[in-house]
Design a protein around this nucleic acid. Structure first.
Length: 339
DNA sequence: GTTATTTGACCCCGG
DNA sequence: CCCGGGGTCAAATAA
């Protein structure tokens, strides 16, 4: 890669995708003028001030959106949480758990997390998984899931990281640490841990680069035919396919669908696959019998008129956003040679 | 040439 | 302050 790094945060309020450490999208103002991140060194003071002002504006917007998301998410979790044996916040974990995200400027469990933040997620995992492993081995079924919501305190606000453990029975001779859960995963590391001779594999969501979820897969120490998968966080996107089977034919080699939309609101799944028919929309319906209204909506959504309107609307939204145009201008400015 | 996986090195934290 | 362990990075390699 010999392209000049461009610091352009277009993901206001969203977890940032993994980027080179020298050019992380979300930054505090004080960090911005680093020469390693763009061409700030070659700019005039005036240009730098303009960019800093714009960045401050974007950062502020980012912070507000983050707070809003944290608030909404907190409300949702509070509504969904019901007392059960499998769902419990670990009180003893509170003292060890820290916020998963950098203060104020990023949402929870950013995949752009540094190693420092990685330790934080470790705290979450260890706080509730130790001592629960035995539950998996005794199961005769294939899957044993546990949900643990970890309350986190960050600048006075609570954040929750959902930690889910899934145990799957596999063939003991099967050495691949693969748990099929319908999502596409990208392996980014493997480690042999002290308390288990079998290696632990680390996965990130390959479907959406900005998806904060992480998965750890390891054979059970007591029973090698049991695969323990630990999910930290939640997907910030719908499941790409139902059980990863319906549209497997259109999954690219990289394991991701370049452009598909799934609508799944606790009902039948609708997948708009924009990769088929030369860009045309194909509606893949799955699940229960479609209601007449739903079918009508599907036809409407698949129509060229709807697509055109959708694209135009997105373009209007982007071009009317002063933050976006400002950031875009700044990025272009940085890309230009010093004329 | 592109993308995913492997794997050794590095970093950070807790004891 | 040092050491060990877990998690992540990133270059090398494979597909």
């Amino acid at each position: 890669m010999d392209t000049a790094p461009v610091c352009l945060d277009l993901m206001v309020g969203l977890p940032m995708a993994r980027e080179p450490s020298s050019c992380t999208g979300t930054r505090t103002l004080a960090e911005v003028p680093s020469p390693a991140c763009g061409r700030a060194a070659s700019m005039t003071n005036e240009e730098a001030k303009i960019l800093q002002a714009k960045l401050a504006q974007v950062s502020d917007e980012n912070r507000r959106l983050t707070e809003m998301i944290a608030h909404l998410y907190g409300n949702r979790v509070a509504r969904e949480s019901s007392p059960s044996a499998c769902t419990a916040a670990s009180p003893s974990s509170n003292k060890r758990v820290r916020a998963l995200s950098p203060p104020a400027t990023s949402t929870a469990a950013s995949p752009a997390s540094s190693k420092k933040r990685g330790r934080e997620s470790d705290s979450v995992e260890t706080s509730n998984s130790r001592g629960e492993a035995a539950n998996c081995d005794k199961k005769s079924g294939t899957v044993d899931a546990q949900h643990v919501d970890s309350p986190l305190r960050d600048d006075g606000t609570y954040r929750r990281i959902k930690v889910k453990r899934v145990c799957t029975r596999i063939d003991p001779s099967d050495t691949s640490l693969v748990v099929k859960d319908g999502y596409q995963w990208r392996k980014y590391g493997q480690k042999v841990t002290r308390d288990n001779p079998s290696p632990r594999a680390y996965f990130r969501c390959a479907f959406a680069p900005s998806c904060p979820i992480k998965k750890k897969v390891q054979r059970s120490a007591e029973n090698s035919s049991v695969l323990e998968a630990t999910y930290e966080g939640e997907h910030n996107h719908p499941q790409p396919t139902r059980a990863g089977e319906l549209t497997s034919s259109c999954v690219t080699r990289s394991g991701s669908v370049p452009c598909s939309i799934s609508i799944n609101s606790s009902g039948p799944t609708i997948t708009l696959d924009l990769t088929k028919n030369g860009g045309g929309v194909q509606v893949v319906e799955a699940g229960e019998a479609q209601q007449p209204d739903l079918k009508k909506v599907c036809r409407e959504v698949a129509s060229p008129e709807f697509r055109r309107e959708l694209v135009e609307q997105m373009a209007r939204e982007l071009t009317s956003d002063p933050n976006f145009t400002g950031a875009l201008a700044a990025a272009i400015l940085q890309k230009l040679p010093e004329y």
